[in-house]
Each structure stands twice: as C-alpha cells, then as structure tokens.
Design a protein around this nucleic acid. Sequence first.
DNA 1: TCGACGTCGCATTAGT
DNA 2: ACTAATGCGA
DNA 3: GTCGA
Length: 764
Amino acid sequence: MAPRTLRDPSSSHTIGFSSSTLFDPTSSPQQPPSSPPAATSTTSATPNSLDLHCLPPIFVIPAHLDSDAQDEVEEELAASHAPLTYSVHEARLFVGLVRSKKRAALELRTRGLWTEEVVREDKSVQEEVKEKVSRGREGGSEPPRKRVKVDGGVAKEDVETASETEVETASEASETESESAPSDHVPAESTIEPSKGNAEAQYAVDGSSVQLQPHPKSPAEDPPGALQFQDHLRVISLDWLRDSLKAGRVMSVGKYVVYECRAIEKPTAPQRQQTLIPRQQIQKVIPARKAQIAAQHPQSQRQQQPSSSQQILDRARADAGEGPRVNQRYHPRRTGLALDVKKPRSQLLQQTTTPEDASPTNADSGPLPPPPDWVAQHVKYACERSTPADTPNAAFVEQLKRIRLARELRDDDIGVRAYSTSIAAVAAYPHEIRAAREVLRLPGCSEKIATLWREFSGSEDGTVAEAREVDDDETLRTLRLFYNIWGVGAKAARHFSLDKGWKDLDDAVEFGWGQLSRVQQIGVKFYDEFAERIPRSETEHIVQVVREHARRVCPVDPDGIEILIVGGYRRGAETSGDVDVIVSHRKLDATMNLVEDIVAALEQSGYITHTLTLSLQGTSRGQATLPFRSSNGAGLGFDTLDKALVVWQDPEWPGKASAAETNAKNPNIHRRVDIIVSPWRTVGCAALGWSGGTTFQRDVRRYAQAVKGWKFDSSGIRDRRTGKVVDLEGPDGVGRGEGIVDAEKKVFEGLGLVYREPWERCTG
DNA sequence: TCGACGTCGCATTAGT
DNA sequence: ACTAATGCGA
DNA sequence: GTCGA
C-alpha cells in the first residue's frame, strides 16, 4: 500500500499514519480541519503540547503501519512522554490501526498475548444478576465473562495474577469472543465463583478519562475506577492520538476503545470437555459451518459392528480357499509358524495383560481362528493381499484412523506411515479380532497396536482415548479445520492455527486472505462443497462429459478415446471425495497435449471453473522435444502423466433459462475432478497407480523396490540400477481387443503379484 | 542399535 | 535473476 | 511405530 502522508494544516505535526484515510469514520469523531491550532515546532522530536506521561504503558500495534508511520506514531508518543513499551505483556494500552474487536484480539494473540473480551456496559441490575448466575456455568464454553463487582480494595492484583488463576475458563472464551451476545445464555447451574479482584469498572468510561488527567499516578489516590482500569487491556484507535494532537489536549480514551479485554493464558492445553461437541457457530462470511461440522463428524453416528458371525465364517472360508496358495508361489513358505516367531512378544504382552485377558471380551482361551496365509507368512505388502472395504474390525480400524489423523495434524509423518501400515493390516484381517495375540500376529502391528486393541475391546463404547483426542482436543479441532482446506497441509494448518492464531475460516478470510496461496483461496472458497461426497451416479455423469469433450478435441479418432474411472469409485465406494478419471488413446499422438485440450474445452463449455494444477510433464512436452525424451534409456519414454486437478461445476440446471433475468446463481455444487491422461504404453501403470488406496499404492512401490529392484510410478516402471524402462505392458501397450484393465493385469503379473480387484484394494 | 519408511511435478518461498 | 528447498496432492 | 539390517 502506498504510504500517503496526511498533513494536518492546523498542526505542524506530521501525522503520517499512512492509512489514516482508512480510519473508520464511524469510530472517530470527524474533526473539522478548523480545530484549534497547536502551533508548535516542526520536528516531531520536539515536545508537543500533549502530556501523556500518566498513561499506562502503551504499545503501538504495527499492523497496517509501514515502518515510517510506525516511527512517527512512536515519536509522537515519546515526545509526549507517553510510557511507550515494546512488550505486549507489559502494555496496558494499545494503539493501532485496528477497527474491530476481532482484529484487535488477533493482533494481540499474534504477539503472544491471549485475551478475552471484557464487556463493559451500563446494564440494568437485572441483567447483571442474570449474568452472575450464568457466569458460573461449567467451565468450558463461556462467552466473554462479565466481571462481578467486587470490593475495590481487593482489586489490586495485576493482570498476570488474575489470568493465572483463571486459566480454566480462559481457553474456550476466545471462541466466542467476537460474539458479545451473552444474553440468551440460560443459566444452567449457579455456582457463583467470585472472581478474584478484577472488579468491573462500572463507570469505566469516566474512569479512563480520569486516569488521563494529569494528576500523578499514585495508587493511593486513584479512584476505584482507575484502579480497576489497570486490570484491563485496551486497544484504541489511532484516531485517538490524531485527535488529541489536533485538539492539542489529551482526548478521553473512552470513545476510541476498540477492544477491551483481559489477558488469559494461552489455551493450548487439551480441553477436558469431551462429551459435547457443542456449538455450531453462526457463520457469517462463509456459510460453511454446518456442512463442515457434519462432514467432520460423520462417524459420530455410531457404527455398529458390521459383521455377523456368519459373515466372518463366510469370509474366513473364502479366504482360506482362495488367497494363500497363489501367494505361496512367490513367497516360498517359511519354516516357522507365526506363533513361534512372535512368541517372545506375545509373552511380553501377555504378561502385562494377564488380568484383562480374563475378561470376557478378550478371553483368549479358545483357539484363535486360523490365520490367513498372509498373516502366517508375514506378507507385509498390502498389494499382496485382499483388502475389501468391509472389515469385521471396522470399529477398531476407525479408531486407528483417528489416531493417524492426529498424527497428520501433528505433522508426524512417520507416525502416519506406521499407523497406515497397521490400519491396512487390520483392515485386511478377515476375522473379528478376539484377542490381543491376534493383533500381534499382523504385520505392522506390534505392542502399541495391541495395547490399543485391548483398550478398545475393554471400553464401553469401543473407543480409545488417543482417538478421541481428535474430537476433544481444541487444538486438534482447529488444526483439522484448516487441514481440511484443499491446498493446506500439516505445515500450513499449524502455521495458521498456532502462529497466526486464527481460529476459524473467518479469521483466514478476514485477516489472512492475502497470505493464502491461490489454491488455498479456492480451497477456502469451496470448503463446504469439497467436503460433500459425490454419489456414483454423479461421478458417472461427470465422466461422461469428460469423455465427450475428449472426443471432441480428438477429431482424428474420437472413437479411440478410452476412459477408466479410478479412485474410490473404482474401489466400489458408494460416494467419493473427488472424481478421478484416466483418459487414454492407443495412438500416441492422440494423447499428446490431450489434457490441455480437454481442459480448455471443458472451460469453454463452462464445466471447469478453476484449474488447481496442471501437470504437463509427460505427453504435452511438445512435439519438438519428443525425440529427445528417448535419451533416457528406453525408447520413446514418457516419464510422467499429464494430469489436471480442477474444480468442476455443471453449468446446466433446471431453471437456468429463466434465471438469466433473475440473476440466479448456478446452484450446482462444485466438485473436485482429476483428469489423468496416460499414453497407451503405460496405461496399466496409471490404472494401478490411481486405483488403490494410499497404502496399497505405496506398498506397490515398496514391493517393486524390495522384491524387484524396480522403481514404480504411475507413469511406468524402470530398473533402479540400470534406469532402463521395464515394459510390462509391451512396447506399445496392450494390443487390440485388450483394454486398460488388461494392461493393468499385465502389470500385476509382471510384478509377480496376484491380480487384486479394485475393491480388494481398500487399504484405508 | 539404528536407518528406512513412495515418488513425482507443480507452486511457492527461501536463499544466493 | 537465478537456483534450491519446501509444501502439497496424488 | 514397526521392521529388518
């Protein structure tokens, strides 16, 4: 922003707060330019007519002030002998270009000073009593607290003390901070806990002006109001200084107060209120909340054990009949039985768990179900076994997933991997787990997981404490809110929440919009819509549109366009988070530049509203560079896939025609759509790479590396040592009469893997 | 006991 | 201005 | 957090 210096003709002082013009006119009495001249010297170093030495410690909030402007403000204050401080904790008064309470609180928070608002108003006795009562409600989610009036003599504790003693109520308060509408709070209980010493300055406005009068600040002489005033922190508009300078006298702070508050302790500590995930806050800027909360707690509708014992038996039988043999071919049987191998660990666990083992839930007295072959043989790659979506241990898996989410939010990617492995193993286990010993046999599951299982199986509600944290812990809830924005990962979520102190999307929109990357802005904009699940029918429709457009931009051989829907849809999910579709064509030329063309066409016809990213590394490298790509080892190599990650909205809706006049908006929900273009040569790899759950996909790579020494990625396979391309699909891909799925099967085969149907790849 | 744990391209930021 | 490092989604 | 060198 261009600093504009505003010179006040009536004063020789330069008031260079560059953004004075931004001042909210309503918050500052407009002073006519003809106000009394203060006529003093021209340099700001020279003392002006103000005497501010009796002010409480004052802090200049630099927000929206360029350094020059900030200097000037500080100069003025210094020249007036104001007790300038640079410590937020020391300061009692804050001046700055701040116009809203929320912003003020954020500015302080950003500097490490957490506050809760103190509302002072002239309220009827009745109201006050009402509030006294409601104030005592259980500690958790109180609105900004109103102070009960206390004998002024007691009220001499400083802010630090006060805040320390009130930690418990502090943390939640900020959540409702800006909504200073406590009126509809129904008093639940009436434990009135007299607040220590921070008496409400009933006549605060008066108090503040008194305080500013030049009588020396001797505590003994301070009127009660002034003393109470010290408890409070106030953020006042810079207008106050400007007007004071203009007027040549110290204006009363009263009408310039933007935000009045008390310091509280930083509410990072885990909250102990776990049963209620209460409030939906009113959404102002973004109509997000309801959908968001619904989307975040879909599981809170209890999930019942999805497996009858009959099912288990069926499954056990099926598994015994099918899976194992084939695997054995590639994994020559090992000599030891699982039990032998794991024995030491089992014992260790049993030793610690003996008491529980007696309990009915995990009585392990009976023989355990025979372990599936992959368990017995310690087959550890998810791509080597069948993982259907419905597992008899869904409830436990769900707990593990929550813990994994907590690890993600804490930016512990190692933990994330570890839990992903465990989850994949448990999810693949075809029996309902009955004993901790069973858990220990699973690859990737050891003592920690077994311990969790014991907690899980012994609990009333089938949950574990660590998993509940994701919902209960305030910090994690906020992190998750940001993490769910497309384009925001663990790092950014933590930055927003922890460093910037944002608490919700409104904060991001109001205060951080400019700091968001382009895609993050899009992610915020469509926060709710992206959280909505996409039914299969809609996926099919979207893909149909993609197909038509692909045909349209491929005039030479439109019938050659081949399409496979991948992602969750292919795994059989009823709904998906996004649409993933692979587009290919047997003719190499046809896939060249195809993404760009498809995207352009879809933009043209109004389906694509935004393009998040466009990867053109592969085919569209341009005809010119094509020959050079062959330099890397084998043949005409396209290393990577072209892909487009876009935002999709169907431009057609029922009332559209008549809507033209009414200015109605397109009501169709925005969707995330990934369009992947693969050359035919590697379309099998693409299908394999885009169809599995994350863990399945990762394990394909690990497997290829460990077992074959290959490097797998969705655009092909090459030998790690030689760097040469491994052609599992044939030099030109599968031939006539064979399709994408056939190509995929060849890749499985070439890797030495049994083909897994897409719905067997639900590794979570 | 200690290192590995999938891999890539794009976008943005940090560093020179 | 350039390259290197980081964050991100898949 | 688990596995394996």
